[in-house]
Simulated scan of single mutants.
Amino acid sequence: MERSLSHIALFTALIAVLGLVPRIDLAAGVPITAQSLGIMLCGTILGARRGALAVLLFLLLVALGLPLLAGGRGGLGVFASPTVGFLLGFPVAAFVAGLIMERTTLAPFWAATAGAVIGGIGVLYLFGITGMAIMLGKSFSEASVLALAFLPGDVLKAVLAGLVTQAVARARPASLLARG
């Protein structure tokens, strides 16, 4: 239990640190950030349950006002912005990525990449596009077109999550909790 708590706290910190990478603001009000890579890694390395808990802890800290989101944003106000769908989708995305990692027998790279694509892109976009559509007063189709700007970077992050997960599996197999 103590080891799980340490991993959850560590990955919460990883998501926060990835928020220090300068964000790229888009016209829709949803920035491109490196934090979605942290969401993907929470699932692929920690597994479904622990990964989702790490993300929930991160969101709790953001809600309490800590400026942990890219650009130093935090507080309840971020949950009333065009980013709300992505924020609410973070724990679900990590859970799905972890579930795929836990349930598949593919090699770590392929399992993690598949989990990151399905959870960290597919599931996250479903939540994010819905939130953008509601908050921006656009149709789901219009919000989907806006979200296309994120796709190339997110595919790159999914491959990177696969490479990092594979490196962890090789260097410290016991640290890959999604397969433990």
Rank of each mutant, 00 (worst) to 15 (best):
L14Y: 08
L66Y: 10
I100C: 05
L60N: 04
G75T: 06
P108Q: 07
F11G: 00
A52P: 00
L64I: 12
L99N: 01
V96D: 03
I100T: 05
G85V: 07
I100K: 00
G19C: 10
G89I: 09
V78S: 03
G122F: 14
G85D: 04
L37K: 01
V92I: 15
E102H: 04
G43I: 05
P91S: 08
P22Q: 06
A97E: 05
R49P: 00
I121H: 06
A116V: 05
I100S: 02
F58E: 00
L66F: 12
F90L: 11
L68W: 01
V30F: 12
V17R: 02
A27Q: 14
A54C: 10
A9P: 09
D25F: 11
A16P: 12
F79V: 02
I8F: 06
A48Q: 05
A28N: 15
A112G: 12
L20K: 02
Y125Q: 10
L76V: 14
M101A: 14
L76Q: 07
G98S: 13
I15Q: 01
I15H: 01
S36V: 14
S36T: 15
L18D: 04
Q35A: 03
C42Y: 04
D25P: 09
V21P: 12
P67I: 03
A94V: 08
G72H: 04
F86N: 06
A16Y: 05
V55H: 01
T12P: 04
L10W: 06
L57S: 13
G98K: 02
P67R: 01
L10A: 15
L41Y: 01
A48R: 06
G85C: 11
L26T: 10
H7A: 15
G74D: 00
F109D: 01
A94P: 00
G120C: 08
A70Y: 05
L57Q: 04
V30D: 03
V117P: 08
A9G: 13
I32W: 03
A63K: 09
W110P: 00
L106A: 14
L26N: 04
A80I: 09
A63T: 09
A70L: 06
L61K: 12
G71F: 11
G115D: 01
V92S: 13
L20F: 14
F90R: 03
T83N: 08
G120E: 02
G115F: 01
I32M: 10
L56H: 09
T12I: 02
L124A: 12
D25T: 14
F86M: 12
E102Q: 15
G89D: 11
I121L: 13
V92P: 02
G74N: 03
A114L: 15
G115H: 04
F11P: 00
I39A: 09
I24C: 03
A93T: 08
A48H: 07
L66M: 13
